[in-house]
Design a protein around this nucleic acid. Sequence first.
DNA 1: AAAGCGGGGCA
DNA 2: TGCCCAGCTTT
Length: 371
Amino acid sequence: MTDRGNEAYFGQRLLRWYRKERRDLPWRRSRDPYHIWVSEIMLQQTRVDTVIPYFNRFVERYPTLRHLAEAPEEDVLKHWEGLGYYSRARNLQAAVREVVERYGGEVPRGKAEVSGLKGVGPYTAGAILSIAYDQPEPAVDGNVMRVLSRYFCLEDDIARPATRTAMEGLARSLIPEGQAADFNQALMELGAMVCTPKSPSCPSCPVGERCEGRLRGREKELPVKTKPKKARPVYRIAALIEGTGANAGRVLVCQRPETGLLARMWELPHVEVPDDKVWGRLDEAAGRLKAALAEEGIRVRVDASEEVGEAQHVFTHLVWNIKVLGAAVLDEREAAGSGYRWVGAAEFESYAWPNVFRKLLTEYFLFRQKA
DNA sequence: AAAGCGGGGCA
DNA sequence: TGCCCAGCTTT
């Protein structure tokens, strides 16, 4: 299927196209392995246009790996706010600290060493080694699997790990001598700009005339990918608790656990209820909220008639449906415990919030400001 | 192999 | 609405 002549055709046509059409992206203006690394972590499951402003802020705030290694964790999380998949931020900082301690502050050049860093999987390791150090390692992401599936008319399910492994072997065999950096980026660039998921621009494709998928009229059916399961709805009741006296103008918030969903981010205290029926009955919902807070040592009076907000937050694997009820603490000293804080409009911006709570609280503080 | 893990853009 | 995005880690 891939005789020498076709490999040369593919690589040379792709490289020529890339050197003419490549986008001017912030991380392409440097060969600093640390900058390449940061960009690749941010780009995991995240679009280029979304990443650009985050990348620029991040490298300005943490110009070198040592700056990042020495930063407070919550500072790093705050810079990641809104980007999603927050374990990436924690893993990245843990990994740069390891590079400082074990490799003298220089991103290692060995495949085993790079792959051993937290948050660095097969794709990211290949991307760092090829783009920063020009090593002939494949970097197979969703773009590359789509391009190869179409070009070679491969019907293997790209959701299967075994397919990705096979694609790595194929991609490795296609790397032109000494041009791994440009070739890998060219492959991804083609997937992003020409060989797009829907309605690919085959007429302007540099390798279209030998694309098996297109020649067989199959380009729109490829790649084959099993569908993910639908997100599961969950129902939650949150408390908006306003402070009084010294805490006037502030709201009681709490920090999420160290691991799992939205780890270490801040939110309104809330409780999950079994189903949408309980969620819809405000008196029962209020009772469950009050009981949950009592478990934390915080006694509150919840006003079931005072629904102050409602929001939906869609994750990949679940959907949060949130009702917000107004409430008041009986004794403000009870809410001084670990993980709980009174936060006002002034401090609000220095905490890291999931989007849904950032929106709810922004709305609230704006409302209070007017009142 | 399957599930957990964000958020946004686009047809 | 559903799909996909320069994926990795844990179970």
